[in-house]
């Protein structure tokens, strides 16, 4: 909190059906203003259909020390990857 401003993470969706992607952050006093600032900073030049803003402090994240137990066990399990399916012709944004 700096001068009554909180930090918000910004996620934008470029087309319907695509995931919202993290693009950066803005400072704002409250959610509506954060949304407007996100629009001005991140949505004015590109195609955007939806914006989310999330208070940064609401994000609970892994720490660098969590790497091993969290992520390494997936390395030897290729069957967890959806590599053995054929995507039907004409399906987009999967």
């Amino acid at each position: 909190m700096e001068n009554g401003l909180r930090l918000w993470e910004v996620f934008v969706q470029s087309r319907t059906g695509k995931p919202h992607e993290h693009v950066g952050s803005v400072r704002a006093s409250h959610a509506e203003m954060a949304l407007q600032h996100a629009r001005d900073v991140y949505a004015r030049r590109g195609p955007v259909v939806s914006i989310w803003v999330v208070p940064t402090e609401a994000i609970y994240a892994t720490q660098p020390g969590d790497e091993g137990p969290f992520f390494d066990p997936a390395d030897t399990k290729p069957y967890r990857h959806p590599l053995f399916y054929k995507v039907p012709h004409g399906v987009k944004n999967i």
């Binding site: 001068n3 400072r27 001005d40 900073v41």
Partner: peptide
Amino acid sequence: PYLEEDIALAN
């Protein structure tokens, strides 16, 4: 008054 609002006003 702060960077984000500066950009908003210029817009």
